[in-house]
Simulated assay, not measured.
Amino acid sequence: MSFVNENDQLEDVLKMTRQHLRQIQSDMTQKQVDKAKQETELNNHLQCLNEEYKMTYEFAKEEYSQDIDMQKAKEEVRLLRHQIDSLGHVNLQAIEDYEEVSTRYETLNHQRLDLIHAQDSILKAIDEMDEIMVSRFSETFEKINHEFNIVFRNLFGGGKAELKYSDPDNILETGIDIDVQPPGKAVQNITLFSGGEKALIAISCLFAILRVRPVPMCILDEVEAALDVANVERFAKYLREFSGQTQFIVVTHREGTMEECDLLYGATMQQKGVTKLVSVKLKDAIDLASSAS
């Protein structure tokens, strides 16, 4: 009888123990659920901290302060978010783009500096050439001006002539004025003379240039056509003086000029429609005429 009672008691204890175990298991399950929820919530907070605030948990923990005014902090966060949003889309290729543009800029800037240096060198060379041109031109101009007065006096039988700069302060772009005074006349501008006088003045200037800078050959096309007989003879004698250093080819119909030539070329038409060129050496013609006489 005692064993039966003891067995009942043990069964009651076992039953109570099982109930307690189930309760503990139920509590453990609930704890695990709560833990999972808390872990999920913690992960969400960590993700929010990283994505929205760009901070790690360790950094936030170090910077956390109990003295922070939460309302003020939220307002500051809102303002910062607004400023970040106003920056617009973030270009993830900005660094690569910057490096490419920077390299391109350095290349172009180097080329620009090279061009500036080349420009400075060219401008310097131009300035040096301008100085040389002004110096040589002025020197030659003065010589021609001196010879022009001499030739003019010989061809006109007196008077005076002068070349002047129209813009003395700008030698490279200046014009040249011709002021002449034939014997017995007042100083006049060249535009006021007759055609023959203008031609003789131009011839004087030509011979003045040839006296300063001789040339191997010169072609003249009826330059003395407007001159009178006396001036044609003066012109022809000047040609003879220069013939030792310059070969002249003269197109003319004036007898005075032809008399001073060494060789004449002419065109004749012995038969209608047939033109023939003939040449005559005046020296041979003179010798032939002398021997015939």
Rank of each mutant, 00 (worst) to 15 (best):
M1D: 08
S2T: 15
S2Q: 14
S2E: 15
F3Y: 14
F3L: 14
D8H: 08
L14D: 05
Q19I: 14
H20Y: 08
H20G: 02
L21R: 09
L21Q: 06
Q30G: 06
K31F: 11
Q32G: 08
D34Q: 08
D34I: 07
Q38K: 13
E39H: 04
T40E: 14
E41G: 07
H45F: 15
L46D: 02
C48W: 14
L49M: 07
K54T: 00
M55C: 02
M55Y: 03
T56K: 01
Y57S: 07
K61Q: 09
E63D: 03
Y64M: 03
D69Q: 02
M70V: 09
Q71I: 12
A73Q: 09
E76S: 06
V77I: 09
R78C: 05
L79I: 06
H82A: 13
S86K: 15
V90N: 06
I95H: 09
E99F: 14
E99T: 13
E99M: 13
E99R: 14
E99D: 11
E100H: 11
V101S: 11
T103A: 14
Y105C: 06
Y105W: 13
Y105E: 01
E106L: 07
L108S: 06
L115M: 10
A118K: 15
Q119T: 15
S121C: 12
S121M: 12
D127T: 09
E128K: 14
I132P: 01
E139Q: 10
T140L: 11
F141I: 03
F141V: 00
I144W: 04
N145R: 13
H146E: 10
E147K: 13
F148H: 02
F152Y: 02
R153K: 09
N154W: 13
G157T: 05
E162F: 04
L163D: 00
K164R: 15
Y165C: 06
Y165P: 05
Y165H: 06
D167C: 07
P168A: 02
N170R: 11
I171P: 01
L172P: 04
G175R: 05
D177Y: 05
I178Y: 04
I178R: 00
P183G: 00
A186W: 08
V187E: 15
F193Q: 05
F193A: 03
G196A: 03
E197Q: 10
K198V: 00
C205N: 08
L206M: 04
R211Y: 00
R211M: 06
V212M: 05
E224I: 09
A226E: 09
D228T: 04
A230N: 11
V232N: 04
V232C: 08
R234H: 07
K237F: 08
R240G: 02
R240I: 04
G244R: 06
G244Y: 04
F248M: 00
I249T: 01
V251Y: 00
R254E: 10
E259Y: 10
G266I: 03
M269T: 13
M269K: 10
Q270W: 05
V274P: 06
K276T: 07
S279D: 13
V280D: 01
K281W: 15
L282V: 06
K283H: 10
D287T: 10
A289M: 09
S290E: 12
S291C: 06
